[in-house]
Amino acid sequence: MLLLQLLVNGILLGGLYVLIAQSLNLIFGVMGIVNLAHGGFIVLAGLFTYWFATTSGLSPLFVLPLAFVAMGLAGALIERFLVEPLMLRERRADLASLMLTFGLSFVLVQLALNLWGSDFVSVPYLQSSYRFRGLNFDAALSISGVFAAVISASLYVWLNYTLSGKSLLAASQSPTGALSCGIDVGRVRMVAFGIGVGLAAAAGVLVIVVLALAPQSANDFTLLAFVIIALGGLGNYLGVVAASLLLGLAQSVAGYFWGGNAEYVLPYLLLLLVMVARPQRFRQSP
């Protein structure tokens, strides 16, 4: 029964991880850049949710659509006016984009520090749990994990089963080929970046319901997302789902038996193992 309980918690946590990683993966898949400001967007949205929920007394879930749209628009603007000019001008566009998003991450973290200070906060929301067939379902974790999984699944369906989603996949697999279909690849990149940032914001809203956050947590989330997409395969959407669930389960088990530190260090241990054993994982699959 204990193992089953750990399994449930692990899968719920994994559901949340899917969203955290998939948003980074989307931007990487389409643009070929790793968005180091990823965790910054998650933290900013999370802390905004905290502020909103504590001042208004409303459910933090109200922030979800708002955060997605507002941050998504901000992301699209960042792509158009910061990323794109850089990608067109620089020869080593991949390095330049790393520096740009690295700098952006500092801006976001400082913004959050100035607005809300450096304390770890969490939203006192749904602190109950439900019992079902002898298993405990933590209400906040359940809602957060399920919402995140549904959002990720919607992204997957959109990408694979709609013409606009397929256009985005096409632009990521061959920009020249996409242009020869009449697809406006520049606009696709803007949309992809916007959706990626919007989904990171949605993840932030769902994270603060479950975990305590501070502005300086930003890099933890960037790294976590990077570990997952490295495990699952860069640009590989189903692989990332598997890696998220695996990591959620592993953390749930490790946290129970060896405590919080083990839980924290586990993603990096896994990353190290993959880097040593399967270095080809770090090339984008064709």
Binding site: K166, L169, A170, Q173, S174, T176, G177
Partner: peptide, 12 residues
Amino acid sequence: HVPSGRELFPRL
């Protein structure tokens, strides 16, 4: 345009 190297979308 049928570009050099074909430029298909391998996973579509």
